[in-house]
Amino acid sequence: MAFHGPSYGLSRELHIKSQSKFSVERARECMMWVEEVINRKLEPEAQNIQDQFEFSNILKNGSVLCELINCIEPGSVKKINTMNAPFKQRENIEMYLKACVNYGLKEQDLFQVNDLYENKNLYMIVDNLYSLGGITQKKGWNGPILGVKVASENKRNFDQEVLKAGQSVIGLQYGSNKGASQAGMTPYGASRQIRPEDMEKRVDEPART
């Protein structure tokens, strides 16, 4: 486990917030699913995971994740690194994430390498596994089930006539200024022009009593 010393200020607040989002129960459920998919027990066994660090230690080198995606979609990761060198372990995680994208997961379903390798946002790894379990069901996976099936995208296609009709309705909503006229109206704030003939007319008019 990587140790970066104590966190202070905003970093500490974010770390505490991240820890509060992690659920040991959900992590156990994920790892029990992983054990069923790869058909072997992990160390410690999924049902015995006590905290987020035990969960992290199982997955940190990336080999279990690569094994998992290869069981779901054979050949997703061509070669899993077995060396203990940090860069090789991080490479495993990167290959797993790339395989997830190729399998159909969206960017919001992924996590950053450091989220796992440096124990930063371990709840995101749990969310990722649930998303992976959901999309396997959408793709007709016959193995163990985790999470809720991902809904298919509902695309609606309209022909040109329907689109034109919609545009006409929108146009009518704006109203019409046909028949309206501002002729003879003096703009607000503008001075009124006085013509000589208007002055003569006013002089000739008899005074009102």
Rank of each mutant, 00 (worst) to 15 (best):
Q160V: 10
S168A: 14
R192I: 14
I145Y: 10
Y103Q: 11
M199E: 06
Q108M: 05
L116F: 05
V148D: 14
N119S: 06
V148L: 13
Q160T: 06
K164H: 12
V113I: 04
P86D: 05
M185D: 05
I93H: 06
R195T: 12
F87Q: 04
P187W: 11
Q112W: 00
E197N: 10
K164A: 11
A99D: 03
C100M: 09
V126F: 07
V126W: 00
G140W: 01
G179P: 08
V169A: 13
F111R: 02
N114V: 02
Q137V: 13
G171M: 15
N119K: 07
Q137L: 10
L172K: 13
K138L: 11
I135Q: 06
Q89N: 02
V150P: 06
P196M: 03
L163K: 13
L105E: 05
F111G: 02
L105H: 02
G171A: 14
Q193E: 14
G184C: 12
N102P: 04
G134S: 04
F87G: 01
L163D: 10
A165Q: 12
K178N: 14
E153D: 08
S176N: 11
Y174D: 15
G184E: 04
A183V: 10
V101F: 12
N114M: 01
D109G: 03
A190F: 10
I145Q: 15
T136G: 05
K139H: 08
G166W: 13
Q173W: 12
G179W: 15
Y174P: 05
E161T: 09
A183M: 12
S131Y: 01
L163M: 13
V126H: 01
K178A: 15
Y96N: 04
R195V: 12
K120G: 00
A190H: 07
I170S: 14
E200T: 08
Y117G: 01
E107F: 06
G104M: 09
Q137R: 08
A183P: 03
Y130P: 07
E107A: 06
M185T: 08
V101N: 08
L110F: 00
K164N: 09
Q160F: 13
L172R: 13
Q182W: 15
G179V: 03
K120V: 01
V169M: 13
L122G: 00
E91Q: 05
I145R: 15
V126G: 02
N154C: 08
E197R: 11
E94G: 08
D115R: 01
L132T: 02
I145L: 08
K164L: 13
W141I: 10
L172M: 11
W141C: 12
N121T: 04
L105V: 01
E107C: 01
N157D: 11
G166Q: 15
R90D: 00
E107K: 09
M124E: 05
K164D: 13
A180E: 13
M95P: 01
N128T: 09
E197F: 07
D198P: 03
Y103G: 14
A151R: 04
K155T: 15
K164T: 08
L132N: 03
G189N: 10
A99T: 05
E197Q: 10
K178T: 07
A180D: 08
G171R: 14
I145G: 08
P144D: 07
L129F: 03
I93W: 06
Y117R: 00
Y174C: 14
Q108C: 06
T186I: 15
M199V: 10
Q137P: 12
L110E: 05
E153A: 03
E197M: 06
A99W: 09
S176G: 08
K88N: 04
V126D: 03
V169H: 12
E107Y: 14
